[in-house]
């Protein structure tokens, strides 16, 4: 446990920089501002709030912030050639990876789940029934994206660029092509949780794009576990400078 805590603190220290904090603050401020605009526009603000959380939160905010923070866990250590100080220690690879992922979670969840939950309230004229589903869907999305982007940071140089390519090409383009391809995008699952739990009929013709809540939760957990296992394996196999 002492080893885990020490590694976790190190990763957290690496992830939180002034630049990243600025990005998080700007994205959170934009979310709340959009929420305020939707909330004060009249009409069905509840549906508007759900669309905002889906469109801005799950499609952009969560993956981008998770990418920026989680990919830096191993990415930055590789880039500045300090990974050796962790790699050579006799600690378990899986514990190291979980510590990195946990550090990303503890930075990203407060950075996106809390502002987006507030956004959902502001946008829906304080419909508190949206708060729980929003927080759960966003948090589960963070859990999965952080695990995937930790892996990306370890295996790819210029992980940020590749991460953005993944978000925009795979998640947003291919993931929106057809019901079949949507299942290949992570965003489908937190979106499904949000839609199912809020019972909002968003564009009924998109029904085929979503899955049930239990299936969505199981899939996100499976993606997370697979990513962590893959990262631990890759960490063991990696060439360290």
């Amino acid at each position: 446990m002492r080893q885990f805590t020490a590694t976790y603190k190190l990763f957290l220290q690496h992830q939180i920089t002034k630049g990243r904090l600025t990005l998080i603050s700007v994205m959170a401020a934009i979310a709340v501002l959009l929420g305020f605009i939707i909330g004060s526009s009249g009409g069905d603000t509840r549906e508007g709030a759900v669309v905002l959380i889906m469109g801005y939160g799950i499609n952009f905010g969560v993956p981008i912030i998770a990418l920026v923070l989680a990919s830096s866990s191993f990415g930055q250590l590789k880039e500045d050639e300090t990974l050796v100080y962790l790699w050579l220690k006799p600690s378990s690879r899986i514990a190291t990876v979980v510590a990195a992922w946990f550090a990303a979670l503890s930075a990203v969840i407060p950075a996106v789940a809390i502002p987006l939950t507030i956004t959902s309230l502001v946008a829906s004229s304080f419909d508190f029934s949206l708060a729980g589903p929003t927080f759960l869907a966003i948090s589960l999305a963070v859990v999965a994206y952080s695990a995937v982007f930790s892996f990306v940071g370890l295996v790819l140089k210029k992980a940020l660029i590749w991460g953005f390519v993944y978000i925009f090409i795979w998640e947003l383009l291919i993931g929106n092509l057809a019901p079949g391809t949507s299942k290949l995008a992570i965003k489908t699952y937190p979106t499904s949780i949000l839609i199912n739990m809020t019972d909002e009929d968003i564009n009924g013709d998109l029904t085929g794009f979503f899955v049930s809540t239990p299936a969505a939760i199981i899939t996100l957990v499976a993606i997370t576990c697979a990513s962590i296992a893959l990262t631990a394996w890759r960490l063991q196999e990696t060439e360290v400078a």
Binding site: L10, Q13, H14, D80, E81, T82, V84, Y85, A241
Partner: peptide, 10 residues
């Protein structure tokens, strides 16, 4: 290690 990289903020 030979390289200068070190945990700068630690």
């Amino acid at each position: 290690p030979q390289q200068d990289g070190i945990f700068e903020r630690q």
